[in-house]
Amino acid sequence: MRFILLVLLPLSLFAQILAVGDRIAPRTLEDQFSKKHRVGNEKVWVLTWDKSTTRIANDYFEKDPSLLQNKEVAMIADFSTIPSGILSLFVMPRMQAYTRHSMLLSFDEKFNASLPYKEGCLTILYLEHGRIMKIEYVDNEQELASTLQTLFRE
């Protein structure tokens, strides 16, 4: 019995990837300054996965943080794979240089693995009352700006 549990445990760690129509439960995440934020009521989540996609989102939101400040959009960065030494010595000081907007940091590997992902792209989740209504992928700042401006002009 113990052997079966040991074999099945790693399989349970692989999360089902969320899709259109699925619900995302509200959660609390910390920003780059360790301030806690409750997420789940926003209209859009902008998800970043690596140094490149995080830079794209940071460049955009540092110029125009209004959507984040109005709680219409949440920028969530996957930090689950960064070793703690690298994180504290190099990554966090760099992230704390962004003072005009909050970048929410997710260290939960299982949750992050459940989020839709496309290599080299930011993931944009359109939410309505915590339910995913649409998923898009963008790979540069201009596409991100166009997508968000179109959405919030309506």
Rank of each mutant, 00 (worst) to 15 (best):
residue 133 M to G: 04
residue 107 F to E: 11
residue 130 G to T: 02
residue 15 A to E: 01
residue 122 L to R: 03
residue 79 F to G: 04
residue 89 L to G: 05
residue 27 R to E: 07
residue 27 R to Y: 05
residue 144 L to G: 00
residue 20 V to K: 14
residue 38 R to E: 13
residue 80 S to K: 04
residue 37 H to S: 08
residue 74 A to M: 04
residue 34 S to T: 09
residue 140 N to Q: 11
residue 134 K to R: 10
residue 43 K to W: 05
residue 24 I to C: 04
residue 150 T to K: 13
residue 12 S to L: 14
residue 118 K to A: 10
residue 71 K to Q: 14
residue 137 Y to F: 07
residue 29 L to V: 05
residue 45 W to I: 05
residue 130 G to H: 01
residue 122 L to H: 04
residue 109 E to T: 08
residue 75 M to H: 15
residue 144 L to V: 02
residue 69 Q to C: 10
residue 19 A to E: 14
residue 118 K to V: 09
residue 94 R to K: 15
residue 67 L to S: 12
residue 153 R to C: 10
residue 59 D to C: 04
residue 9 L to Q: 14
residue 84 S to K: 03
residue 91 V to K: 11
residue 94 R to E: 13
residue 4 I to N: 09
residue 66 S to G: 12
residue 118 K to Y: 01
residue 143 E to G: 03
residue 121 C to I: 01
residue 6 L to V: 07
residue 45 W to G: 08
residue 44 V to I: 14
residue 41 N to F: 06
residue 61 F to T: 02
residue 3 F to K: 08
residue 13 L to K: 12
residue 16 Q to N: 12
residue 23 R to H: 10
residue 120 G to N: 01
residue 97 A to E: 15
residue 133 M to I: 07
residue 77 A to H: 00
residue 36 K to D: 09
residue 135 I to S: 00
residue 92 M to I: 13
